[in-house]
Design a protein around this nucleic acid. Structure first.
Length: 425
DNA sequence: TCTGGGGTCCTAGGACCC
DNA sequence: TCTGGGGTCCTAGGACCC
């Protein structure tokens, strides 16, 4: 690795701000009796947990019963989902007081480029400290911040800073900072890649940086090899870009292992199409590509089920019924390709995603078209029906009228929680 | 009894056009 | 007789992130 100090000492002007154990911290903020205690948001599945619970090995996504086993004193609390959204937004407003260059990555995390703010607020480290103080004092939440020359480094720095800390990476000593850290801290290195690297005896970023590009390509494939190489070589050129709109909208539903019959498929896909369609219509958008995903339930004991996708690209769609029909035909087409009779195919998840999004500014365009490109009576009736239903639900709530929702399995997660993960369309 | 949902990005291969 | 190269769009799969 190159140990020569950076020739022109740049400032660590990229910040990564990340709220600590966000949902759990909000619960502890709202109910002081929960502070300092191991808690988890959720029930059947741990959606989030406090640092006190993490000490016991509890982590998000874990089954509730397992969390209980690891940490017998853990307290499960229901989620105040509206508060998560509100407080997350408030934190972002604090960040925007320092610079308009804020790229929100999720409800609780954002990058900032403060290069234009140093004259007003002082050096990046000072800005980061002020952010932490303000979020703590004005909102009441702990937040960790990393400051560095690049996004990648800033992100790693904030992870190292957790919980409730601040790490500034001096541009002259980036290599020394990175070398001893585990490869898993790098953006883009997940469990699969980590395991592959571990097989080769590579566990730290320093070891990764010493590996040749050819080796990495051979081990990880061209795409990942190149990317990993660039990151390990500390060559991250990405800019902080104010958050853009989503490029796709989707919904998925996991259920137990079961045979996919016509009724169940229609109900489930109808429900998913409705979730997706409503979001599209609310923002006057539509998508040209409809993709379904099917996860097959492997025989018990044979490990995780294989998942496949099938897609169709055509005219922009946003209508629930049209989406449902396209999805159904894609699903049955894929099922037919599976070995064995369709009645024997077991599935565990269905998903619909719509991409290639376009704006549908005018009513004219939003009207669904018949096969010949003309607006048909049926299509017009559907359009009218769906917009009427959207209006009723906006006024009286989701449950007022709608497509029957799939019988909720114990796996499913509250709708409010799903909505937190939705990106702005 | 290894789990839930919304996204992004990347690649390879094939079709089609010029 | 075929021989090329480049670009774009589409499909499918995979890994990853929060």
């Amino acid at each position: 690795m190159n140990k020569v100090p950076h020739p022109q000492p740049a400032l660590p002007t990229i910040l990564h701000a990340d709220l600590d154990a966000f949902y759990a911290s909000v619960e502890q903020l709202l109910d002081p009796s929960l502070r300092g205690k191991p808690i988890a948001v959720g029930g059947g599945v741990v959606l989030a947990c406090s640092y006190e619970a993490k000490k016991f090995g509890v982590s998000s996504g874990m089954g509730g019963w397992k969390a209980q086993q690891l940490c017998p004193t853990i307290q499960f609390v229901g989620g105040h989902f509206k508060e998560y959204q509100r407080l997350g937004d408030e934190v972002m407003k604090v960040l925007e007081d320092f610079t308009p260059l804020v790229q929100r990555i999720s409800i609780d995390e954002a990058f900032l480029d403060v290069s234009g703010a140093v004259h007003l607020f002082g050096p990046p480290g000072e800005i980061a400290a002020r952010i932490r103080t303000r979020v703590r004092e004005e909102i009441g939440l702990p937040i960790s911040v990393g400051a560095a020359r690049t996004k990648h480094l800033a992100k790693i720095a904030s992870q190292v800073a957790k919980p409730d800390g601040l790490v500034v990476v001096d541009p002259r000593y980036e290599t020394e900072f990175l070398e001893p850290l585990p490869v898993g801290l790098m953006w883009g290195i997940g469990p699969v890649t980590q395991a592959k690297l571990a097989e080769k005896g590579i566990t730290t970023i320093g070891q990764l940086a010493e590996s040749s590009g050819e080796s990495l390509t051979a081990w990880l494939g061209k795409a990942l090899g190149g990317k990993v190489r660039a990151l390990a070589a500390n060559d991250d050129q990405r800019k902080v870009r104010p958050t853009g709109r989503a490029g796709s909208v989707g919904a998925q539903s996991a259920f137990g292992r079961r045979v996919l019959d016509r009724d169940f498929a229609r109900q489930t896909l109808g429900h998913l199409a409705d979730r997706v369609g409503r979001r599209l219509r609310a923002k006057q958008r539509a998508g040209r590509t409809v993709t379904v995903r099917i996860r097959f339930a492997g025989e018990p004991g044979t490990g995780a089920g294989r998942a496949i996708t099938r897609s169709h690209t055509g005219r922009p769609v946003a209508g629930t019924l049209t989406l449902t029909e396209i999805a159904e035909s894609l699903v049955w087409g894929a099922i037919a390709q599976q070995p064995g009779p369709p009645e024997a195919v077991m599935v565990s998840l269905l998903a619909i995603s719509v991409s290639n999004l376009v704006d549908q500014a005018s009513l004219q365009l939003e009207l669904p078209l018949g096969d010949d490109g003309e607006v048909t009576d049926v299509a017009a009736a559907r359009w009218a029906l769906e917009h009427a239903m959207d209006a009723v639900r906006d006024k009286f709530g989701k449950a007022a009228v709608g497509y029957s929702s799939t019988a909720l399995s114990r796996h499913s997660v509250p709708d409010e929680f799903r909505e937190l993960a939705e990106r702005e369309l």
